[in-house]
């Protein structure tokens, strides 16, 4: 898909702004709201030990427990919005971590294979690759009607290739591109980082998504 220079800049700006905003909210939840709630939680635990009345002790204990659950929810929400592993550990660990959540949410097992040594890529590139993989997996959960899928990462000198495959229902790619903006967004996202995304599918046989990114 060819994108005109001005349109490419606007698309790039919108996607980048959206990612920056998601990251800001995730950080604010984790480092701001989450930390404040943790201070309140430890305060409640202190009150619980200081209170003598059994009824009040139980009440404060329940509140502390609820607070603990809320802290966990906030932490999970922040991780879902922007996986911290992406910036600290890299694409492969972030994908592994996401796949655990994916399997436990949709019941679809994903076989992840990696070949070659992961090299450092920019944060913009890694978040783009992560989002494209996320979109591909979301499409599998929504439309493929399959129990399993596979992801194969290949780090070659000068190029990273990612192949996402399922043996599900498959679909008409042309019709799908007209109907779903998600497919077009995957291709456009890859174009914006000078990469490629090729979607091929056969009805009744499954879908393959080949992503490639030049490495410098």
């Amino acid at each position: 898909m060819e994108i005109q220079p001005a349109k490419k800049n606007i698309s790039s700006y919108i996607i980048q702004s959206q990612e920056d905003e998601i990251k800001r909210i995730a950080l604010e939840l984790h480092e701001g709201v989450g930390q404040t709630l943790y201070s309140l939680y430890t305060g409640m635990q202190f009150i619980q030990t200081a209170v003598d009345q059994p009824e009040m002790k139980g009440y404060v204990g329940d509140m502390a427990q609820m607070m603990e659950k809320t802290i966990q929810e906030i932490r999970l929400l922040a991780v879902e919005l922007h996986p911290p592993a992406l910036g600290t550990l890299g694409l492969l660990p972030a994908l592994k971590s996401y796949l655990k959540l994916y399997t436990s949410t949709y019941g679809i097992t994903v076989d992840l294979q990696n070949e070659g040594m992961e090299v450092q890529i920019s944060e913009r590139e890694s978040i783009t690759l992560f989002r494209v993989c996320q979109e591909a997996l979301a499409n599998i959960a929504r439309y493929a009607d399959t129990m399993s899928a596979s992801i194969f990462l290949q780090w070659k000198p000068g190029q990273l290739s990612i192949n996402i495959e399922d043996k599900g229902m498959g679909f008409d790619v042309d019709a799908g591109m007209q109907k779903s903006s998600g497919l077009a967004a995957m291709i456009e996202r890859m174009c914006l980082i000078s990469g490629k995304c090729v979607i091929s599918s056969k009805i009744g046989e499954g879908t393959t998504i080949d992503i490639s990114l030049p490495l410098y």
Partner: peptide
């Protein structure tokens, strides 16, 4: 129609 339900875990809420 499949065994996916056995692996599905959702969070409270």
């Amino acid at each position: 129609s499949n065994e996916k339900y056995k692996r599905i875990t959702v969070r409270y809420g």
